[in-house]
Amino acid sequence: MAASRTALALLLFAPLAFFAAFFLAPMAVVAISSVTTDGDTLTFAHYARILLDEYHWDVLWVTFRIALMTTLICMLVGFPLAWYLVRIVRWRTWRRICVILVIVPLFTSNIVRSFGWMVLLGRTGLVNQALMTLGLTERPIRFLGTETGILIGLVYILVPFVVLAVGNALATIDNSYEEASADLGVGPARTFWFVTLPLCLPGAVSGAIIVFALAVSAYVTPALLSGGQITVFSMLIFQQYSSVFDFHYGAALSITLLVLTLVLVGIAGRIGDAGRRAA
């Protein structure tokens, strides 16, 4: 008993030490610097400056709006894709190829992919050329420097997370539930709505939370695709660290975004739980 406890402690030690050194310690540094001044006196002035200023709430609203839209579109695109991969594809090789196609972009850096979108979405880019050739628009549509542009970039980068999370949930659902539902005379649409969907809700919610958290904190994609004309919160944080050098104010901005995101993720988690209980 004692031996196994020692073994457990040893096993736990490595991940805990790693977690403390690379997550808790930097986090503590940021948290402390957000409530101090250069003279190391305690102050909440940085938070007051953020929370009492309508401008910051404006930027937060833009940030959360973009993240929510990204999550919504990722779910709408990712869910059918996951369904197709798990339920419709019968040929195993083709399924493997599809999974690889979904995952491979994750191996390329965000910077490269966002630069790619800058070229595609530009005034003379492929998207506008195609739209004009098809006669859908007479003048090039402005994508760069708009929320639409940022949304396109973020959805493209984050869709794989939904496909993987939902696909995993779908694959673990026991077919016999759906068969039972059909045996009891319920049509496929109602079976999906009352049986399949609630069963894969936990997977869908975790996918949505990952996408939302990544979209809220995204820097590279919004920074490049906004063309500096739209500000999201992470850009304010970057500015303070990189060009204003006010680390205290920058830290307070970071903690503000972190806390608000955690609150929203917490609410989403509750919704997921409620959904599961209802099922």
Binding site: F115, M118, G122, G125, G145, G227
Partner: peptide, 18 residues
């Protein structure tokens, strides 16, 4: 068209004709 935040973004925009 854009306010560039990295020199690379400016190069990219000149290169693509944006």
């Amino acid at each position: 068209a854009l306010f560039f935040d990295s020199s690379g973004a400016a190069s990219n925009a000149f290169q693509s004709g944006e």
